[in-house]
Design a binder for these strands. Structure first.
Lengths: 341, 341
DNA sequence: GGCGATACTGCAATCGATTGCAATAGCTAA
DNA sequence: TTAGCTATTGCAATCGATTGCAGTATCGCC
């Protein structure tokens, strides 16, 4: 059904009886071209379903109108795309980019090419980079910062990173979660998560803030390292937390997935949630409201997060100074932590 | 730190004291070039961190080495990227593509440009298309089939689609699920899912197969339409299923997310799972094993699925005839359906 | 009638790599 | 010594669109 050969701008120009330059300008709605001519060209282009060859345009304009999104994984755990939270964020980014007329190149950074910058930018595959992943303690990111490459990172600030980081206010989130647990009467708390990740570290610090403010002895707050999976949440809870029962009465998990794993382990041992142990997660993934008991959590605003990432990146690409942003989080109290008084 | 200006092949050639053609061939390891020359050029390229300009190469070779993956949504529900299953599949596809040297362009098809084919292919943004989404009853897919565009679809065959469809053996999955419920003693079954989607329809048909084989009256099997979300699983269960209690004793949900919603509703009304109502889902998403009770399900093999999609597409792009594939599924019996006898 | 301004349009160079074909050098065999 | 090969390398065209600059009409106005 389709035309045999691909149409080119030259064909359209010929059909319209104008030069290629005029055709090109007409299609891009350049006002310098007579309106009648413009409409005629556009009409012919539409008629033949002509689509500008993006490759040729990109070569000539030296832009790709494409942003590469890199999901960075810890080289050792090598876990695949799975955390529902990251994927939600990804969806928002995709939409936002397309709204700005950009395509999105997705890469999962499994291959150990340490050289994102050159792969995507030097090769002109993309005009900019968005890096999302679990914490940004990554030497590759530090290396990127030394270059001219426009990029933004999703994560948490740990100090004075010389590049824009967009992320939730994790410390505030940690504080809210812990305050809530304390308000429910918990006194022996556990933090379940890997504090080598900036974001997680911040959540942990927020928790400590709250405890300190409440006058809780610091040795009443345990921290237990844990991967970002329900599986590890389950295992770590089984292996380490039961020993601390029955004093232990509150768990703050660094992600909802971890929390669900922990919940499973607790329920299997007939530990009442939230009466004996109150539990709260982080992220508010779609499932959180539908487990039993429903999971209290700190909701990250993926919508604003994705938009902010894209907008800061575009700002940067226009040569302006991008800003790091910390997005407000929201405490959602559900059954897993609400002890009805 | 980086070089001021972008290096081009011409620069490398000059530095190596050869022509551009020789440099190009040397970099691509063309054996017609003297080995000494080749190594020299490659060494210089490496030294200056030269990366071939993908845009220029693509223009000249008329290929983009890029595959577009389209996540198609029902135009009306407009739900965002959320189903964990799709996202798992996406991860596998990403890895497999990169293994074959292809980049992956991700699009969520929210904008109602009905014209994927031209957007990605005519514009030379991509060499092929992978379409994943919830059922392929999409006029846009039918339209694509009329063109020369190389594409493959994730889904379920409904009949004689003139394009390659890769997907699980949904009918067999439905059969396994229903047989299992029946073996547990269930006699009044409900199917929770939208059978307008091919895949879901197949699962439903498989269920009916099993019931018929077991001599169950067809009016003992109810079908209830439901979106692909935990939320709707919850709502539909609340709104429609409680009326049928206490006869109702088995639910087969079209996805794990739906099943979790249903589970929540049942538990809220103190209905014992699996004793009073046995429940089974479909997909085996990461959370399924960690809800309580853990969710029985039919596991789709995302690993082979993703690989098959990519491989069939590449086959098609090489001009050969691609094949539709039905992947084996696996029944996972967990607490939500296992009535210990 | 002529001059400058205005409004369009087209020529030709350009983006950077790839590749068919021609050219050159070195060597062997007659 | 020379025709005939082989092994390497380079020339120049090409992919398709964009754009600076020059060229042509048309019009107004003195």
């Amino acid at each position: 059904m389709n035309d045999k050969k691909m149409m080119t701008l030259a064909d359209i120009a010929k059909l319209a009886g104008v030069s290629e330059s005029t055709a090109s300008r007409a299609l891009r709605n350049n006002p310098v071209i007579n309106q009648t001519t413009r409409e005629k060209v556009q009409q012919i282009a539409a008629e033949y379903q002509f689509k500008v060859n993006a490759t040729a345009r990109n070569l000539r304009t030296q832009k790709s109108y494409t942003i590469a999104v890199i999901i960075a994984f810890d080289a050792k755990t090598q876990q695949s795309v799975s955390d529902p939270f990251l994927l939600e964020l990804l969806g928002v980014i995709a939409d936002e980019l397309s709204q700005h007329g950009y395509d999105m190149l997705l890469s999962t950074s499994k291959r150990d090419d340490k050289d994102w910058g050159s792969y995507f930018l030097d090769s002109k595959r993309a005009d900019g980079l968005i890096i999302i992943g679990q914490g940004e303690h990554d030497p590759r990111v530090e290396a990127l910062a030394q270059t001219q490459v426009p990029f933004v990172v999703w994560g948490g600030r740990s100090g004075d990173e010389p590049y824009p980081i967009i992320g939730s206010d994790n410390r505030q989130g940690g504080r809210l979660a812990a305050e809530h647990l304390l308000a429910q009467g918990c006194r022996q708390l556990v933090f379940l998560g890997d504090i080598r990740h900036n974001e997680i570290e911040q959540r942990h610090l927020g928790m400590l803030d709250a405890c300190q403010a409440a006058g809780i002895a610091s040795d009443a707050v345990q921290q237990l390292s844990c991967d970002f999976t329900a599986q590890d949440g389950y295992l770590k809870t089984q292996q380490h937390l039961f020993a601390r029962l029955p004093e232990l009465d509150g768990i703050f998990a660094a992600s909802d997935a971890i929390a669900m794993g922990a919940m499973k382990a607790l329920l299997e041992h007939d530990i009442a949630i939230p009466q004996q142990v109150a539990l709260i997660g982080f992220d508010d993934i779609a499932m959180s409201a539908y487990c039993t008991p429903s999971l209290s959590t700190v909701k990250q605003n993926t919508q604003s997060g994705g938009k902010a990432l894209v907008n800061q990146l575009l700002t940067r690409m226009q040569g302006q100074q991008p800003l790091s942003e910390q997005l407000a989080v929201k405490l959602l109290c559900r059954q897993s932590s609400l002890r009805r008084l």
